[in-house]
């Protein structure tokens, strides 16, 4: 029988960076096992009250409607700190820049970093810059590390999640991905859709003040569906999402039909998924009062009725919403 050579196991492919199953596999088989990490986490509590997290940012195009790589590098890390319940305070930033990159573009990127940091109330305190030869990088990559203070009384964890918890998102799903695809691949949508890229720490703090919250996660790579699956893997409780309640723009639905990609698997940069005890039904109005919570919606619940993550279609039928193995590919026609 002829051998099928599967190069995927020998070299890194883009699928390893997609945030889906292959990324998890890579992290657990190479990084976590070598570094002897107990948890596959991107943030860590160094000591009681102190949280640190780090994130590398690469994006094409570097400037996109609604933001640029600099804004993203700040908001992404601020949000990573904030979803742990901590108050983000400081950022460190490291830049890898391709020879020939215009300084005026760099200035624009750094200015948006400063604006985003001011809005989030964090200080950028240190950094590093390396320049690599032309063609050895594509434009600019930014890695940011965030530090935040975690109040004593805040304990967010998948282990806190209980049956009947309501699942809440704060914003339209899929906007960031649609904005990026539209500008990178010149789909020509008018007006160009905007990325949702935003610092969500103030929103999260307002939520924690108003209500008990069990767990929060930002729905970046892999989207809302991937987070729900990670939660299920962690705590073993079933999840049912109600498709008719999902906040998704009609334009997003239209583009995603065309490309055969589901919004629930699209990366966001301004969407958090929260698990909140059922009795805190007025949290939506608190979230709605925040600039980045105006489109908040309860999208589903935690339940013992099912094992796994399911979507209830508007027809009432249930279909599984599994974790994907790699980024979905846009399909033919």
């Amino acid at each position: 029988m002829p051998l099928i050579i599967n190069m995927k196991d020998n070299i890194i492919t883009l699928a390893h960076g997609s945030g889906a199953r292959l990324t998890q596999k890579l992290i657990s088989s190479v990084f976590a096992s070598t570094f002897q990490m107990e948890e596959l986490s991107d943030s860590f509590r160094i000591e009681p009250g102190l949280v640190v997290t780090t994130d590398a940012h690469v994006i094409k195009p570097i400037f996109f409607p609604g933001g640029n790589i600099g804004k993203l590098a700040v908001t992404g890390t601020v949000n990573d700190v904030a979803v742990s319940g901590a108050v983000p305070a400081y950022l460190l930033a490291a830049f890898i820049i391709e020879e020939g990159f215009p300084i005026s573009d760099l200035q624009k990127i750094v200015t948006s970093m400063q604006h985003a940091a001011q809005e989030a109330g964090v200080k950028i305190i240190a950094g590093d810059t390396k320049v690599v030869e032309k063609h050895n990088a594509e434009g600019i990559y930014i890695t940011t590390t965030g530090i935040g203070y975690l109040p004593d009384d805040i304990h967010l964890s998948t282990q806190m999640i209980k049956p009947d918890d309501q699942i809440i998102v704060n914003n339209y799903i899929g906007d960031h991905t649609i904005a990026i695809i539209n500008s990178r691949d010149q789909l020509g949508l008018q007006p160009p859709p905007l990325s949702d890229c935003a610092p969500l720490n103030h929103l999260i703090q307002a939520m924690l003040k108003a209500s008990k919250v069990h767990f929060i996660r930002d729905a970046t790579r892999g989207g809302v569906a991937t987070i729900l699956n990670e939660v299920y893997d962690d705590c073993g409780l079933g999840i049912i999402i109600d498709e008719s309640t999902l906040p998704i723009r009609n334009s997003t639905l239209a583009v995603s039909e065309l490309l055969g990609m589901e919004p629930l698997y699209m990366a966001n940069e301004g969407v958090i998924v929260s698990f909140v005890p059922a009795q805190y039904y007025d949290l939506l109005s608190v979230m709605g009062a925040s600039k980045y919570g105006e489109n908040s919606a309860i999208i589903g619940k935690v339940t013992n009725e099912v094992k796994g993550v399911y979507l209830k279609t508007p027809l009432g039928s249930l279909r599984p919403l599994p974790m994907l193995n790699a980024d979905p590919l846009p399909r033919i026609c």
Binding site: P2, I4, I5, N6, M7, K8, I11, I12, T13, L14, A15, D185, G260, A326, L329, P330, R331, I332, C333
Partner: peptide, 26 residues
């Protein structure tokens, strides 16, 4: 078109070939 990328050939996929240096664009 994107979904050809992971179609298996007898010696791997276009995605594999791209990782090995072939210029493949979606």
């Amino acid at each position: 078109f994107g979904d050809m990328l992971r179609l298996p050939g007898n010696n791997g996929t276009l995605e594999d070939a791209r990782a090995a240096g072939l210029d493949v664009r979606i």
